[in-house]
């Protein structure tokens, strides 16, 4: 490939640095980690203050339901990583299928959560309820934290599912952006996308007749890489949501 065409590739893709995108994603995950970290800090303080109340309040939570939900979320992490791996192996169909499966498992988690919350609410165990007002202060805090933490986590699951809905077509597509290389005037060489729009134009000095095939290949490969990083970053987010639950589960359900 000539220098001119190489330059065009570089310009088209200089803003799409896979490692950079991943660093950005990890930094975002750190903000999520600290967001939940603040809540874990509150939990730790109140737990230290009211250990007995916390233990007592935790007995009302359904361990079986919690365990099932843990298994669901762990499995969804597996299907997520398999989706990423399938995409890496260029198997778009399998990748999409696993992604859809991950969404379903996420939904199952939320359905369980819904039943769990509504049982609690039916029993008058929610902030502001007359029933809860009669309980010990530590129990009120336990439920306050329970709703805040599982609620915020549930919100993240919901957001994750929504994100996956957007990523589904990205994972499924095989980018074939056709570009055409040709001369527009006597000496001006231009690269145009089939959909319209000039990607690059120059007046090269050297001959460029054998460019086309290799350039197309590089270009599509680059687009595929961009899709891959989207799928991968979705995975990173989903695993973080899983990790948060890995800590929430024992801290709320298993301290009886």
């Amino acid at each position: 490939m000539s220098d001119a065409a190489l330059g065009a590739v570089a310009r088209e893709h200089e803003h799409h640095d896979a490692t950079g995108a991943k660093i950005g994603m990890w930094l975002f995950l750190f903000t999520e980690f600290l967001l939940f970290g603040g809540l874990f800090l509150l939990y730790a303080v109140y737990r230290t203050k009211f250990p007995a109340d916390f233990h007592f309040a935790a007995t009302t939570l359904d361990v079986r339901l919690g365990t099932v939900n843990t298994a669901i979320l762990l499995t969804s992490s597996l299907t997520m990583v398999l989706s990423v791996a399938a995409h890496e192996r260029d198997n778009r169909k399998l990748s999409t299928a696993f992604l859809a499966l991950t969404m379903l498992l996420g939904l199952a988690f939320l359905v369980n959560k819904y039943f769990e919350w509504s049982t609690k609410i039916d029993h008058g165990l929610f902030p502001g309820a007359a029933e809860l007002a009669t309980h010990a202060p530590g129990e009120k805090l336990f439920y306050g934290l329970y709703y805040a933490m599982t609620g915020l986590h549930g919100l993240h699951v919901l957001i994750g599912i929504a994100v996956m809905a957007f990523v589904l077509p990205v994972a499924a597509r095989r980018p074939r952006r056709r570009v055409r290389l040709g001369t527009q005037s006597a000496s001006r060489l231009a690269l145009t996308a089939e959909a319209g729009g000039e990607l690059w134009a120059e007046t090269p000095e050297d001959a460029v007749d054998e460019i086309e095939v290799s350039f197309l290949y590089e270009h599509n490969e680059e687009l595929a890489k961009r899709d891959r990083i989207v799928v991968e970053n979705t995975g990173l987010y989903w695993h973080l949501v899983d990790i948060v639950w890995i800590f929430l589960f024992p801290l709320f359900y298993l301290i009886t």
Binding site: L78, G235, L236, H239, I243, I246, F247, L251, L254
Partner: peptide, 22 residues
């Protein structure tokens, strides 16, 4: 010890997720 055990196991689990899945 049960709290310690719970935290310890959760840490092992999340490091597995971090190093393999992520």
């Amino acid at each position: 010890l049960s709290v310690l055990a719970a935290i310890l196991i959760a840490s092992v689990k999340s490091s597995l997720v971090l190093s393999f899945f992520m």
